[in-house]
Write a protein that binds this DNA or RNA. Structure first.
Length: 349
DNA sequence: TATGTTTCAAATGAATCCACGTCAGCGGGATTA
DNA sequence: ATCCCGCTGACGTGGATTCATTTGAAACATAAA
């Protein structure tokens, strides 16, 4: 008998966007309505990780009329104005363009082309771009001459409202309409998992209790799906509750790897270092992390970066919600931050 | 053959973005005097 | 009052990349010996 219970690997992959969405009907309507109006509004979507923001947007974009240009830019990867503009330019002109140009040249080119066609620009993980390069891109996009022809959709897992994270002039010309995504209830996670199992796995290959177990442990749909996938890959004929329970940590590891996909080897090394250190102490400090990171470089054959740089990278991990940090001022510890693993990590035990 | 002109590729220059490093000021409770 | 120690913003550097200009040599053209 065939051990493999994965029927359709494509549908189990991290990036897979189902054609039919479980729940989120209201959010979908608001999105679809907004993008079908004559004067396109700007939108800001906020919700914790794994609440379906990105997937829903991409799915809605897929079904927009072809008269509308749609561009999806993950800002964790394209984290400067220039890189994002480059993606935008490529998407609306089908022309590749190199790196040595002036930003304003790209801006002019884009202004010309968005004159003609309506365009929706999705900036997913906008936090990373704001942190790394400020709000120049948002300001530019909001002030395009025919701004009713262009819609800027920002997505964030950390900033409920952009107002506190961009300059006032940017916010006032952007005026985004807010859409909030509440965390999934466990019944919803349950339905999502069941739906996915039905599509991607062979029939009757998943114990109901296994799905229920996952649904009870996490509200993060992305994590839940990574868990199901990990279990399905390991399963011998059937995904059982026991198997799911055993694979908790492995699944979380896979989920983090998925998250870190667009980041540097240093980010990954840092992440391993923190996991290792926090197994020893509950809470660790930047200094310890940096020291340990320096030791690791011998075994991992890569040039170490400065503490300044690592400090920024830790911020990245924080924005990814892979770690949590408390900024500690004063005391015998001086000004530093205390870092620990996220709740998601803890509940996988 | 000597000299002038054209042509085209390679070399050079000036400008761009960006990852990363260095520097210095800062913060504020704990410690010390 | 001082210490702690890493956060943080400003700024500089060098690599990779771009377009524009210059250079250099070959190819060709013309005129003179």
């Amino acid at each position: 008998m065939d051990k493999n219970i994965i029927d359709d690997p494509g549908k189990m992959k991290p990036g897979y966007i189902p054609s039919r969405f479980v729940d989120r009907e209201m959010e979908r309507e608001v999105l679809a309505d907004s993008l079908s109006t004559k004067s396109l509004p700007n939108l800001h979507l906020y919700g914790p990780r794994g609440t379906g923001k990105s997937h829903l947007v991409r799915q809605v974009l897929r079904n927009t009329p072809t008269t509308l240009n749609t561009v999806y830019i993950p800002c964790n990867r394209y984290n400067t104005q220039y890189k994002a503009l480059k993606q935008l330019f490529q998407a609306i002109s089908n022309d590749d363009i190199g790196n040595g140009y002036h930003t304003s040249l790209l801006q002019r080119q884009i202004a010309q082309r968005t004159d003609v066609t309506k365009t929706v620009v999705v900036l997913d993980e906008i936090d990373f771009l704001l942190l790394n390069d400020g709000d120049d891109l948002l300001y530019y996009l909001s002030r395009l001459e025919h701004s009713s022809r262009i819609s800027v959709v920002t997505i964030s897992s950390n900033y409920p409202d952009l107002a506190n994270h961009v300059e006032p002039r940017t916010y006032s010309s952007l005026q985004p309409k807010q859409i909030r995504f509440e965390p999934y209830a466990s019944e919803e996670i349950y339905r999502i998992l069941v739906d996915r199992a039905r599509n991607g796995l062979t029939p009757d290959s998943v114990e109901q209790a296994a799905v229920a177990y996952i649904a009870n442990q996490t509200q993060n749909a992305q994590l839940a799906l990574a868990w199901l996938r990990t279990a399905a890959e390991q399963a011998d004929h059937q995904v059982t509750e026991e198997l799911v329970r055993d694979l908790g940590m492995t699944s979380y590891g896979n989920y983090v790897v998925e998250k870190l996909d667009n980041f540097s080897a240093h980010h990954k090394a840092l992440c391993r270092t923190i996991t290792e250190l926090s197994a020893e102490n509950q809470v660790v400090q930047t200094g310890e992390i940096y020291d340990r990171y320096l030791n690791h470089r011998n075994t991992e054959s890569m040039d170490p970066l400065s503490q300044r740089r690592i400090s920024d990278f830790l911020k990245d991990l924080e924005l990814l919600n892979v770690i949590e940090a408390d900024y500690h001022y004063g005391g015998s510890k001086g000004k530093t931050r205390e870092i620990w693993r996220t709740e998601a990590f803890e509940c996988m035990h």
